[in-house]
Simulated assay, not measured.
Amino acid sequence: MNHRISFHTIGTPNVLRWEEAPLPEPRPGEAKVRHRAIGVNYIDAYQRSGAYPVPLPAYPGFEAVGRVEALGSDTAGLQVGQRVGYVDGGAGAYSEAKNHPASRLIPLPETISDDEAAGLLFKGLTAHMLVRRVWRPQPGAWALVHAAAGGVGLVLTRWLTSEGVRVIGLVSTDEKAALAKAEGAEATLVVHRGDSYSALPNQVRQLTGRAGAAVVFDSTGRDTFESSLDSLAPFGLLVSYGRSSGPLPTFDPAELAKRGSLALQRPSIFHHVADHAILQSAAKEMFAAHAEGKLKAHIHRRLPLQEAAEAHALFESRATTGALILLP
């Protein structure tokens, strides 16, 4: 019998349920994937809490890896027993097995384990989007990375520094600062949880010779938006790709001109990998970067799938570093 996690009402992590979920044979264009490891991401918590409304009942999870157990028709290129992963194609990854669109499956190389892949796919492809589509690394340029010891932050910091970017890692504890430095951050700034970010722009300018950062990667959202803008050099780019502290404030675009002809982008990984060819190409480059040591998977903790509520509580505490993995 297959099992999955669901929620029938929005709320705290306690609304997550463990339930039986009979799984039919895959339809044409689908592959049945028996999961080996499942990634936990902010979007899962946003949907469960109601920040991102979804029809109820809902079935969380967009990222998982496993082996192909059965194939429907029209699934050329896949084999039963093949190791695969995915980062989109419909929610429901918090399950023991799932029928998934075959065209959205990513073959996994032997250079990465199941756990590493589950901790890296969504976060690594997000980093790929940021350094290949949103802002091309410029050797010697300064980049401010928020939540630099988080799941995406650690991957992004290592990738940027491997290409010559001078990274300032923003973190909430001294322990997290040490992790960001270990991944190559040239400098770190600590703003403890609940404290103000008002001093951040001046701190960034002191580190950059008064110039400011060429780019700010901000996954925090509401609490850091203004300070991120004020940390940029003229013609700088604010990349707002998360909202862990809440939705962005109402903003007049004219402020971008007043602050130095700035640019603002709000990218989504789902747009980045929507095209099949780009998905496969991006994944291949990401795995190659992993094999070369340009990025690595950081796994904070592994929990049984049945303990998804605890995983969400840990995630929302913002005390984790790296990825949380659920094991069926």
Rank of each mutant, 00 (worst) to 15 (best):
A199Q: 05
D174E: 08
S198W: 14
D195T: 04
A177V: 00
A199K: 04
G184L: 08
L170D: 08
Q203F: 04
T173P: 06
G194M: 09
A182M: 09
G169S: 02
H192R: 09
A185L: 05
N202E: 07
S172T: 08
T208I: 13
L189K: 03
I168P: 04
L170K: 05
L170V: 04
L189M: 08
A187S: 15
L179K: 00
Q206M: 12
A211E: 14
E175P: 01
P201S: 13
R193N: 06
G212Y: 03
G184C: 06
R193S: 13
A187E: 13
Q203C: 03
A177M: 01
D195W: 03
T173E: 11
G194L: 08
A187H: 13
G212T: 06
K181H: 13
G212F: 03
D174A: 09
A182T: 10
A180V: 01
G169N: 10
S172M: 06
E186R: 05
V204D: 05
A182D: 10
A185H: 13
S198R: 13
T208N: 08
I168K: 02
I168Y: 08
L170Y: 08
S172R: 10
S198N: 13
V191L: 15
A185V: 10
P201V: 05
A185I: 15
V171W: 03
T173Y: 14
L179M: 00
R210K: 10
L189D: 03
K181F: 15
P201Y: 06
R210P: 14
S198H: 07
K176M: 01
A211C: 12
V190F: 00
R193C: 03
D174H: 15
A182G: 13
T188N: 03
S172C: 07
A182I: 07
S172V: 09
R205N: 07
E186V: 09
